[in-house]
Amino acid sequence: MSRAIRPRSRAPGMTRAPRFRAVGPSRERESAHAIDLSTRIGPLELANPVLVASGTFGYGDEYAHVVDVSALGGVITKTVTLMPRAGNPAGRIAETAAGMLNSIGLENVGLEKCRSEKLPKLRSLGATIVASVGGETPDDLVRLLEALGDEPGVAGFEINFSCPNVAEGGARYWADPSRLEHTLAHLRPLTRGALIAKLPPDVTSIADLAIACERGGADALTAVNTFVGLALDLDALKSKLGRATGGLSGPAIKPLALARCHEAVRAVGIPVIGSGGIESGRDAMEFLAIGAAAVQVGTASFIRPGASSTVLDEIREFLASRGIARLDNWRGCLRDLGQGRA
């Protein structure tokens, strides 16, 4: 039996720093942990801005022997639906230039097993839990939140309005501002936890969707889910995936995601969580610079399961090396980029 890589243990409260203390590069190492990374997402106060993206970290326990999930800002579960889903047939993954296409089809254990087995396990690991939920209709989502809304230890919900890989209730269906607004208005009273709407990138105006979500009562947005993509096998003359198209993720989409995220940030007053191609602390700092409140690490965890911890460490080092004691002093520093130009 091997010894697992032990997560570094951190004393609770270590991230609370004396405010506005300038730190010089010479004290970088010891001061990195004293930087204030606190992050507010609606009613949620997170210790830091690094979350793991839905569908790339299972139900939070699969990577727990290599990542101290309690040290992350939060863990977003695989999207859960009312009933278990078996997912799409084989041909679910294809690598593309600096990215990957997936067509998983929301395979998940379903509400019951999530509640009875997965959430308690994740709770016991001390993680801040955001449950991702998905539905084919507004009514599905209402039922999911009725069931999970008061679940102990669930700090918030990310509503997956943006899956590109399902026939019913996917990104296309939800890319309708009034549908989003009305659905969120129904969900709002069902939980006191954070209500986060996850948006698709392949839309005419992500700003319109973002505004509708804010009006409907969302506490925050996630921008963005995967981009619809297609890759062909020219020898077999078919798609490299079982279903023709899939969702593109990974470094290839970072500039695209950053632009969509920026557009959403500028459109609304609620926090926006960035997702798309984040592999390093510097990637995260770009999203935070344009005004994202927090970031999600997705595909990077498949390549290095410890990627989320690394991103967190690198954010601290980045700030420490510039003598910035609070993430708030960085967040949004480039929010107004391009403002006033056509």
Partner: peptide, 28 residues
Amino acid sequence: ESVMACGTGVCRGCPLPRSRAKSEAFDS
């Protein structure tokens, strides 16, 4: 074999179809 991403059961990218008997006897 299957094309894989994570290799650890997390991404759900490498499905193989179960036989009917296995599927019927499946105990979650």
